[in-house]
Amino acid sequence: MDRMATRFAACKAQGRAALITFVTAGDPTVAATPAILDALVEGGADIIELGMPFTDPMADGPAIELANLRSLGSGTKTAHIFAIAADFRARHPDTPLVLMGYANPMLVRGSDWFADQCKAAGVDGVICVDVPPEEDAELGPALRGAGIHLVRLATPTTDAKRLPAVLEGASGFLYHVSVAGITGKQQAAQANIELAVQKLRAATDLPIAVGFGVRTPEQAAAIGRIADGVVVGSAIVDLVGSHGDAAAPFVQQFVAALSGALTANSRETAA
């Protein structure tokens, strides 16, 4: 089993959902990022999504958009991001790391180059917001060739007819975007999430993670009861936004609260 599958299996064995946390690489600076990533792990994150900043993050709401601009404004380059990833891998050999971002920065030097860099840095998976299955040839073959998971997104508009196309070539886990919208805005109704996860489960054996709009330990716990993973992004990025270079302890405290809520689920189930 690879790092990602091992981690999902371990969480499952503990009777809880995996906590997947997102921050933007280089936000607020390249130098500050390692401590923030360590805080995520210390706080109890199971899987790290590391955002690759882009000038035009059109699927993101204000929180993550600002994080992108803070990062680029402080001079983050793609080479820094791979260095951050490689150092993370050395410090945390068992924690899966997923790069998330937009097609242009990933593909500007060609998909083979990108896949090679991911492999060399110990990156486990990639989420590319604006390469849908229809354009898989841009990115998918190179990643699969390098043994990197291509994590696909399913949304409320992905109907039953389309789902097989989304699942084709998807690996690692399936990311259910719970709202038709951008990051960090609305929260989906729990009933809708339950229904969606049920449908996805019937169609795939991949672990299913739910994200977009999850901001509190309570929401995380509710989603953790039905999904294999819960993704929290904007709420953490907001902490980085307000505390800057000194964000790590605040991030750790918040992530610990999220993690605690998911673990409490497992105690409930056990009891």
């Binding site: 059109m58 699927a59 097609a103 917001v129 604006d130 390469v131 849908p132 229809e134 354009e135 696909r152 997104l153 399913a154 949304t155 409320p156 508009t157 992905t158 109907d159 389309r162 989304v166 975007v177 038709a180 919208g181």
Partner: peptide, 20 residues
């Protein structure tokens, strides 16, 4: 048929927009 002009064009959008 897939919206390409040579190597250009295509449909690079978030999954939410694809069905639309």
């Amino acid at each position: 048929a897939s919206g390409h002009f040579g190597q250009f064009g295509g449909r690079y959008v978030a999954e939410t927009l694809m069905p639309l």
